[in-house]
Amino acid sequence: MAAETLAALLLLADGRLPAGGHAHSGGLEPTVAAGGVHDIASLEEFLRGRATTSGAVAAAFAAAACAALTAGDTGRFAVLDAELDARTPSPALRATSRKLGRQLQRAMRAIRPHPCWAELGSRPHHPVVLGAAAAVSGLSPSAAALAAVHDAVAGPATAAVRLLGLDPFATHAVLARLGPLLDDVAADATRRAAGSPADLPASAAPLLDLAAERHATWEVRLFAS
């Protein structure tokens, strides 16, 4: 196992990682359409909400998957998969998570070949694959959690720049202000990583669920989710 390096984490958390994320807005596109995000202040509110709900869940599952693989317990992947399904009431969001999971799995097969990619099956959830990717990169569960919650806010922030023409500097300043919150979310996720999967956080975001369901029915959309 490779020693943990910051370079490995930067690679995994870089928006340029070719794993399909650029085409997803994390619920931002339908939220913009509904008037929920229209400027920097409302974007910040949206991202805080996302970090503490779906972001926190993703971080916990990424940390748990990382811990499981590092401990050699790949049997846990199936349990984590079922637990994450149970925390994702929107069928559209479940499909999105599995699509992004499969895309990250495909990319990681080439980036860091490892037997775990086969063990994850054909449609794994994204946070579980991200956790495995962190483990294979020699990273700890806390790094996996941080990458997951960072991903949960950085994607929609970029989508806001593209959809609303928001100032990219002001948008990145929002991401910078979110730093301490992301650290807290990741720390909490890390504390729970080795515990029972049933006890992982289940923070819900009903508005994101509804937005995802509406978005999936749109005839014309720029983002896949």
Binding site: G20, A23, H24, R106, A224
Partner: peptide, 21 residues
């Protein structure tokens, strides 16, 4: 049909995941 998140060139060049899928 594949959605490209406002970046058609990205989907065929820098991040081909969705098209491969």
């Amino acid at each position: 049909a594949v959605e490209t998140g406002c970046c058609p060139h990205t989907a065929i060049r820098d991040d081909i995941s969705a098209n491969l899928e």
